[in-house]
Amino acid sequence: MSDSHSLLVQGRVWNFPDDNINTDLMMPQSVFAKPLQVQLRSVFATYRPGWVDAVRPGDIIVAGRNFGTGSSRPGSFLLKQIGIAAIVAETINGLFYRNCINYALPAMECPGVRELASEGDVMRINFATGSVDNLTQNITRSAPPMPEFLQAIIRAGGIRERLKAEGYL
């Protein structure tokens, strides 16, 4: 297990292999004005019913291409709140990626990762070096590491913590 803003994450894998999994599936428009607890219940509720109940803190999402395509709604915030500790995908939508960094949810692109893990495998990801290890099957991949500038945002706990520290909030 890892602390909540760590760039070295070890956890259990959930596979989301489809391409183009979008933000509306993570956070439907119908919950925008609802309390946080209702929003958390809505995460992938129509796409993968019951999944939210099975997630444990520290789990990792392994995803396909164009993960998180869609709107600016903070689906990454909800994923972090339900306990997801990291996302590794074939490719990630840029707006969703920014939201991940800004809410201190480490995310990374790793070509070939979709074939790397079966659901339930234990994976270790080092975002600073780009190494992705499937500890269950003893397979390793490497991806471009996260830029130092973005690592610093995650280590600070996201940009809200920074704005508070700088007296803006």
Binding site: S71, L95, Y103, I159, R160, L163, Y168
Partner: peptide
């Protein structure tokens, strides 16, 4: 021009 999350927009208003 690009879309940003609401938290990042808050940061840009501030800084």
């Amino acid at each position: 021009a690009r879309g940003m999350g609401p938290l990042e927009m808050l940061q840009i208003m501030c800084t």
